[in-house]
């Protein structure tokens, strides 16, 4: 059984390295983030397999931490899009606000 689990871990690693190609190619930021998400999930799978192979209960904690923080990068990414979008909006509006800003400056 241990051999089978080792092979399973290797296959998971291969699938993870395949995801690396998608990170490299993109094309969009969203595609890269999705690949990173896959990395988190596959990482959890590999850690679980390693925990069983090496019979080390502590490794389950690591899998737990990895899965807890799996969505954090995506959250940051979504916020990133928001920022850039609204900044683009703001800069298009900026000419309108110029007089108000100048007034404020003078005070």
């Amino acid at each position: 059984m241990a051999d089978f689990l080792t092979i399973a871990a290797i296959v998971l690693l291969i699938s993870l390295l395949l995801g690396l190609i998608r990170v490299w190619r993109g094309p969009g930021a969203a595609d890269r983030m999705l690949a990173a998400q896959l990395f988190g999930t596959t990482g959890v799978g590999i850690v679980l397999l390693l925990a069983v192979i090496t019979d080390n209960g502590a490794l389950f904690d690591i899998a737990l931490v990895l899965s807890l923080l799996a969505a954090v990068a995506i959250l940051a990414f979504v916020r990133r899009l928001k920022l850039q979008q609204s900044a683009a909006d703001a800069s298009s509006l900026s000419t309108k606000n110029d007089t108000a800003a100048n007034k404020k400056e003078g005070q």
């Binding site: 900044a87 703001a90 800069s91 900026s94 606000n97 110029d98 108000a100 800003a101």
Partner: peptide, 8 residues
């Protein structure tokens, strides 16, 4: 000094 930064 300019509204662009305030916008950001």
């Amino acid at each position: 000094p300019s509204s662009a930064l305030i916008g950001a």
